[in-house]
């Protein structure tokens, strides 16, 4: 599904160079649910952004669903984001002036679906997250957890192969966080690959595979480690 090899990302400003990722290699198979953990500033978001084609990497190779992504045009990358990827953000990133229906509609319009198909997909995905009855509501009229569910519905409506989530529960209390996590698990159970960055060890422990990022490099922790060990690795780093 996703294959990064010897990838590096360097941020250059006129003063400093930040090596956000170096010699970063990882393979994620179809159907996996990967939790990415690591200290602040270690490069988790950078990894997710590159995986999600929001940023370009500096060196190395990256293949997504069999497509080599180095040197693609912006238009092509936009189309891939639209068709193959779904995003869930910490801050939900709903458009405040559009109701739920129109929010979920945003990526579908870029896809060029017919009005009929869009309507059907919007209704199905809002149903899936349990908010079909509030289609005409605006984001400000929902709780945080509900807003994140709408964002998930928006990510799902295009039937992506890979769902990318950067701290999807970071702004939610533990109750709502659990609800969102359960939703993600059911999505994964339906076959969608998920990569989720999280600071919450409890959530990370629920996934089958944990990836630990330290100082721009990846330490893959398959399920051999239990929760405590993950914590320890992070501390010793």
């Amino acid at each position: 599904m996703l294959k990064m090899n010897g990838l590096s990302k360097v941020y250059r400003t006129h003063l400093v160079e930040t090596h956000a990722l170096r010699e970063f290699s990882i393979t994620v198979d179809e159907g996996e649910f990967v939790a990415v953990t690591g200290p602040s500033g270690s490069g988790k978001t950078t990894f997710l952004n590159i995986a999600g084609l929001l940023e370009e990497h500096t060196e190395g190779s990256y293949q997504l669903d069999g497509i080599e992504l180095t040197g693609l045009s912006d238009r092509k990358r936009s189309a891939l984001r639209n068709e193959k990827l779904g995003f869930i953000f910490q801050g939900f990133n709903l458009i405040p002036d559009l109701n739920l229906f129109d929010n979920v509609d945003v990526p579908l319009r870029y896809r060029g679906f017919s009005a009929k198909e869009r309507k059907q997909r919007i209704e199905t995905s809002l149903e899936q997250v349990g908010l079909a009855s509030r289609m005409k509501h605006f984001p400000s009229e929902l709780s945080g957890g509900q807003q994140q569910r709408v964002a998930i519905a928006r990510a799902l409506a295009g039937e992506p192969k890979l769902l990318l989530a950067d701290e999807p529960t970071g702004n939610l209390d533990s109750n709502m966080a659990r609800g969102v996590m359960e939703l993600l698990e059911s999505i994964n159970a339906n076959g969608t690959t998920i990569i989720m960055v999280t600071h919450d060890p409890e959530l990370a422990a629920r996934t089958r595979r944990n990836v630990h990022v330290i100082d721009g490099q990846v330490t893959d922790l398959r399920t051999v480690f239990n929760n405590d060990n993950v914590e320890r690795t992070a501390e010793t780093a």
Binding site: D74, S78, A79, E83, F89, N93, P107, Y110, R154, G158
Partner: peptide
């Protein structure tokens, strides 16, 4: 700005 970034993430091209 954030909304524009989000739209881009959701698949909008520069032209869009």
């Amino acid at each position: 700005t954030k909304q524009i970034g989000t739209r881009r993430a959701l698949g909008a091209t520069k032209f869009d």
